[in-house]
Design a protein around this nucleic acid. Sequence first.
DNA 1: CATCAGCGTGAATCTCGATTCATCCCGGCG
DNA 2: CGCCGGGATGAATCGAGATTCACGCTGATG
Lengths: 191, 191
Amino acid sequence: MRRTVRETVRLAILDAAEELIARHGLHDAALVQIARRAGVAVGTLYNYFTDRDALIRALFETRRATFRPRLLAAIDAGRDLAFEPRLRRFVRDLLDAFESHRSFLKLAIENEHLKPSASNTPQDLAAGVRDILAAGVREGAIPAAGDLLALAITGTIKAVVVQRIQAGSELARDADAIVDFVLDGARRSAR
Amino acid sequence: MRRTVRETVRLAILDAAEELIARHGLHDAALVQIARRAGVAVGTLYNYFTDRDALIRALFETRRATFRPRLLAAIDAGRDLAFEPRLRRFVRDLLDAFESHRSFLKLAIENEHLKPSASNTPQDLAAGVRDILAAGVREGAIPAAGDLLALAITGTIKAVVVQRIQAGSELARDADAIVDFVLDGARRSAR
DNA sequence: CATCAGCGTGAATCTCGATTCATCCCGGCG
DNA sequence: CGCCGGGATGAATCGAGATTCACGCTGATG
């Protein structure tokens, strides 16, 4: 009982922090505001986290903890599929995962340079893409292409995600178009 | 005489700020450090800029002032060329321009969300790409593709640039590969 | 019902970096 | 040479936000 209450408050604090950081940025989310929005006093924050930094770290930690499995699952999902369907499914699952973690995503995107250690999501993502591409090369679906192809895919996905998130529109809708584009390039239907 | 000295100091301050911001981030570049690195006293900064914010703004301003023309030139350079050579040249010129403004680029990339007003480079870039693509569509070289194609191109370029800059390697080398990839996609048969 | 432990509270304090300003320094000029 | 004005200086001041802590409140315990 006691335990659940405490946990609820903890989550409220993290939610408040997430919301405020997403809105104002890491630096301008003051503890007083976080406390107010979480419905507790400033001092209370220190009963849950040793200091501001620990709070922030905990925020990234928990969000990543829920997000990362989905990313890994997306990478793993189509392991038996052929290259193209696997890539297609991967991108779709990935965008779905992003979709349900918009706030975290915003934080991760905007603060990746400040907290590189707090999230290995980018590494996981890159690794997953490389993995899928390597399989594609092995089965002869695509020619080997150095790291450029992986960069192009992650870069394209990221650009689309950022744009759609800022525009407030859906993500999943673009999944197939991205794959089409990546596989066959701009000249596709003009051939 | 007097004038040149003053200008030299001003540039030293901006260089120092650029360096420190690139290294530690916008927020953690303290004026004391900037002053020390520029070889002046803190108070001196205020003889050149009204306050910290003005200094930062001036930094972005000057850097953009040298960078933007090159970007615009790159967009304009191949206006008479056909789509593919134009795109090819654009990417090459663009990477060259990036190459000679590495620090600024780092700032622009990492702080685009903090100072959206301080640099319209991203907008210019996006506009330039859209422009080139529109011409390509008009001449039938590529099919119309919503905004996805533009996102894919800028996203790919950005990913490559970021990776190469972090790895400390050259940029221009990738220009043609990027275009090849964008035009013909991953399935392009190994040549 | 008295006591107590533990948590919540928010005003007081501490920190740290931006900003100010009294003072210093130097090169030009009578 | 001595005087002056404009910039340079950096210690003192300010401000904003993080951190602390003495003081309640509450619910459990005997």
